[in-house]
């Protein structure tokens, strides 16, 4: 009896020593989880609407004289085609006008705006007129504005490399003066555009 219980007791003691429970070291798990969490925290961008700012010139009723060479017009038609021209499109007077309207794809407008704005004779004086057909879709209008905004950044960068004299006669980097206005494409210009615009040829300005 005594012997047997002693034996059992010893056996029980041995088994108990093995079964002390266990610890899992969570540190590496937490490390990795934190790392992942940090990674996602910094890389996630919430899908949030953003805004595009626009400034329009005040309404003026007086006629303003503008040099034809300083006016770049981008016209968006109802079907989504865009034309551009410098000056006016009154071609009856001058059928060989080199500045006849050219068809352009919306994606290349940024190159056009960049190139036209930095032409030496109109640098920083060019007025961009964006005329839109009343039936044109809003998203195309935004797409064109977007292109102009993209170009604007490069224009500012390019201009800031050059210097001009300020009132005190000091040389300072050229300040960009953006001249932009938006208007409705009138019927007259619309027919002119469809008549004189180069059909089906997309000018690749680069």
């Amino acid at each position: 009896m005594d012997n047997a219980s002693e034996k059992r007791g010893k056996a029980a003691k041995r088994k108990q020593k093995k079964r002390v429970g266990f610890h899992i070291d969570m540190t590496p798990l937490v490390d990795i989880t934190f790392l992942l969490l940090m990674f996602f925290l910094f890389t996630t961008t919430m899908l949030k609407p953003q805004v595009m700012e626009m400034r329009i010139p005040p309404e003026i009723y007086a006629e303003v004289e503008v040099k034809a060479s300083e006016l770049l017009t981008i016209s968006l038609l109802e079907d989504g085609r865009t034309y551009w021209f410098v000056g006016t499109i009154d071609l009856e007077k001058d059928p060989n006008n080199p500045n006849r309207p050219q068809l352009i794809s919306i994606d290349s407008i940024k190159y056009l705006a960049f190139e036209q704005n930095l032409k030496p004779n109109v640098k920083n004086r060019l007025i961009t007129l964006f005329s839109i057909d009343e039936k044109a879709k809003y998203d195309l209008m935004i797409a064109v504005l977007d292109q102009l905004n993209v170009a604007e950044m490069s224009i500012i960068e390019e201009l800031s490399k050059e210097t001009e004299e300020n009132e005190q006669g000091e040389l300072v980097p050229i300040q960009r003066k953006r001249r932009f206005t938006i208007s409705v494409l009138n019927d007259e210009d619309k027919t002119r555009l469809t008549k004189t615009g180069v059909e089906g040829v997309s000018e690749n300005v680069n």
Binding site: L47, P49, Q50, V51, M52, E53, M54, R55, I56, P57, P58, E59, L76, I132, D133, E134, K135, A136, K137, Y138, D139, M141, I142, L145, D146, I182, V184
Partner: peptide, 29 residues
């Protein structure tokens, strides 16, 4: 995005008449 420019222009004109010449378009990235 499918709204015609006509309506946008109406709003722009109203804003302009009220001397509000800086405004924003809400867009999606």
């Amino acid at each position: 995005k499918d709204v015609n420019f006509k309506y946008i222009n109406t709003v722009i004109n109203i804003l302009n008449k009220n001397n509000q010449r800086v405004f924003n378009y809400v867009t999606q990235k």
